[in-house]
Amino acid sequence: MKRTIGASQSRAFYAFISPWLIGFAVLTLLPILASLYYSFTDYDVIHAPAWVGLGNFRELFHDEQFWNSISVTLKYTFISVPLTLLLSLLLAILINQKVPFQGFFRTAIYFPSMISGVAMSLLFTWIFNPQAGPFNYVLSLFGMDPIPWLLDERFALWALIVMSFWGMGAGMLIFLAGLQGVPASLLEAARLDGAGRLRSFWHVTLPMISPVFLFQLIVGIIDSFQVFTQAYTITQGGPNYTTWFYVYNIYISAFKNFRYGYASAMAWLLLAAVLLITWFILKASNRFVYYEGSR
């Protein structure tokens, strides 16, 4: 329905997209630039921003809490994202075996990921409760001693990682759609060539769904760079800062310590990190992701 057009059509185009243009300018572009400016200032809202040059970044470099928040966030990301991805792919493969009650399994596994992060956080705080919570009770059935999950600095982050598995339903649905999109003719051809199931999975199915995998990897990493709800609701960054996530650190610096300039510097680094990671994964993917129609 597209057509190249004259001035009146061009006016209509800008009229239609004007909500987004205005929103982009005022709520996205302006904040990005403002936050870049603030990151070079000392700003507490009461006094005017005072230019400090690279002062904030220099301070960040020596800020133990800043480095800690990065290490917490990276640890969470590099454990939770790959595990969640693999598990959701595995589940999608299982469901795709044309098992009975396919629809039920799909719904049941997807269902928990819709529930609000706060409600899930409350629920898991209670589930991980060292005295009366069911998680330790289930472990005790296997002869394990009770673990003070969220109260112990060795386990708190792991408890949050375990909790993240209950959000893998959406990823499973995306993989399932990807698997169902693999043309049956290709699999049939592989079978006729004598390929076993593992080999046809490895050489046909996996390449065909690799774009889906890549997309989920990027989204998963970007999402987990922004973990906030669990830190705010469950642990308040504790015990002993072991769940002090990066965005939680930004939140505390800006909205509790009123250091808007300092927090803006961190916000900008987050933006840069997200761009960099996206670029890096896309670049690396040229090697192992297969796009139908290319090459």
Partner: peptide
């Protein structure tokens, strides 16, 4: 689409 909200939340808040 990929823009993290935390990267722009401070100026939005001030606005």
């Amino acid at each position: 689409m990929m823009l993290p909200y935390p990267a722009i939340m401070i100026p939005q808040f001030l606005l």
